[in-house]
Design a protein around this nucleic acid. Sequence first.
DNA 1: GCAATAACCGTTAACGTTTACAATGTTAAT
DNA 2: ATTAACATTGTAAACGTTAACGGTTATTGC
Lengths: 361, 361
Amino acid sequence: MKNNITLFDIADSLGVSIGTVHRALHDHPGVSPMTKTKVLQMAKTLGYRPNLAARYLSQKRHLRISVNTLKGTTSFWDEVRAGIEAAAKSSGMKIDVEYRTYPGIGDGEKEAFEAALEAKVNGIILFPSRPGDLRRSMRMASRSRTPVVCVATDAPGTGRLAVVSIDTMASGSLAADLLGRILKGQGKVAVTLSDLAITEHAEKVKAFKNTLASLYPAMNLQAPVEDHDIESEAYEKCQKLFRDNPDLAGIYITTEASIPALRAARDAGMLDRLAIVTTDLFPALVDEIRSGAVTATIYQRPRTQGLMAFRVLHEFLVEGDCPSFQVTLAPHLVMRGNLDFFLKRVSFESSPNYRTQIQNA
Amino acid sequence: MKNNITLFDIADSLGVSIGTVHRALHDHPGVSPMTKTKVLQMAKTLGYRPNLAARYLSQKRHLRISVNTLKGTTSFWDEVRAGIEAAAKSSGMKIDVEYRTYPGIGDGEKEAFEAALEAKVNGIILFPSRPGDLRRSMRMASRSRTPVVCVATDAPGTGRLAVVSIDTMASGSLAADLLGRILKGQGKVAVTLSDLAITEHAEKVKAFKNTLASLYPAMNLQAPVEDHDIESEAYEKCQKLFRDNPDLAGIYITTEASIPALRAARDAGMLDRLAIVTTDLFPALVDEIRSGAVTATIYQRPRTQGLMAFRVLHEFLVEGDCPSFQVTLAPHLVMRGNLDFFLKRVSFESSPNYRTQIQNA
DNA sequence: GCAATAACCGTTAACGTTTACAATGTTAAT
DNA sequence: ATTAACATTGTAAACGTTAACGGTTATTGC
């Protein structure tokens, strides 16, 4: 048994040429159905695995990918982009990454997507802020064989190649378990989210609710607060929540805009008797965690998400097939205790003489 | 400015052959000092980056690496090995991985290491259970230019290439913060470890202590319990601990053998009024978490450690230099809420038609 | 029955690096 | 002066895949 089967081996054992074998394996035109099946058969029995190095080497076209994300008001998307950048660098290939950003949820994302298609990029990494708006464009991409990898949010039924995201169930359940433990299974808790129509948020809330019900049945969950990603709405609705429930013991904020909610709690004088679990990690939130106001935050590992998204896309582009269509990451729970770890960031030195330390969250 | 500088470009601009350039760049004999410096100079000014694909392709020697770890009584090392296996597979190269295991701490690890050196492997991934014992052998490896990557535990002053481990500070501090939150900053807590002489354990305990002191000054930390990785010792010392401190409120178990400690707590009738944070994740512990006896465990991501160790070693072997000498991972906090995520494991299907889901902890 | 097309298949030159070997020139020894 | 030994450099064949190009046959249209 040879350990490394090549195109030549297949061709040789069938008495055809490597050109034919190549065409057969890649669905290229110009090979009869008979020989094609024979080649595929032989490839399988011999256990052919393409040599990626040779493949990289022979294809001189250099890849261009488009990264379509929200213009980073928070640092989340900056981190995602940093992860993509890092993965691209370590891939060993020369890859052009074009960034297309759009100002807000559903604002210009269709245009950005179509611009990327227009520019004939080889692949797209996308945050679908309004999956519905993109459905038609993404179907077009699918037809024109342009792979699309979604980050953070899925866009079902659009023919996207893969999705990279945080496990929403784990996020919601973890928040519930943590609050339950801290509150000793007693008291009233609430949850905020941007919109129940967004699958990810709805799932988190559902998991939160279910876990609370099964592990801490004595606890009392209020109706979810929707803020539609509008700061003023978040503040006002939380204000009302705190006024109506002066005995509230804990709150799980899945919203990106957690600061207004915290402000409302502070203004209501409830900050220090409230157990608070938030989502994501950004400078303003760091202060709140360090001061103890926020018990913990569920860190969605944007850098890793970007990294994985690139890897999946890249693997598809060079290997031709995709290792997985759904990459689910475990969220990190960040508290005061391990906060510093997440703040220390990679410091690259170009000189190989300097010993660098990589923190891999 | 050309984007991709090749050996030919350097050779061409100097009027020499690519053979000479290659020899100069790789410190091979048979090139005059003059031309060598000129080549190095030119390579730098042109910004030469070797094409890895071409390098893989041309060198037919296939890499052999040795993985020296403890024979997995717990599943920790099995997971590490699985991570290495996965990384080796996805590296795209044919790589022989030889496993050398030794039964216990410091038992046969020197012999295993020397066997690996004897076998002339290209690199070693190593768990140094007793770094001191290995110092001389590792120095030898360093001299013979065999790269060694440590997993889980560092071996300082041994010339090892790199170390992959969990951030011990983050682990200890996180445990402290969590216990502090749950116990409302009040009460007596304890910590167990295998041996204060092991740097990692000592660091965790120190971080635990410091965080407790700074964030929850009212709490009271008992003297650390050392069990030397002996189950009976763990049981007996914990028994004594619980007898001497019937008012103990929480305990942080950094020991791998957390089960005896839990048994002692159960036997002392203290299990349900004790907040317990453990380390690692294995079947017996899963039950304790699910039942609520254990509040949380600090998961050290063995699979990821194996993965990273392989990547670093591989990159060194093919690229020639090392991206980082210290890879530090963030520990995962596993509670009932997110336990299921970590139990669902990768299910690979060989057929590319099946859509597979990868859980990436 | 002959040219024109199509369908199929073989051949070959890249891609950039490594490595063995050949070809220089230079010095020292006969 | 001739040769052996050596140091330095050039040459060319691999590695496995891709893609463009030529060359076969068969099929069609006149």
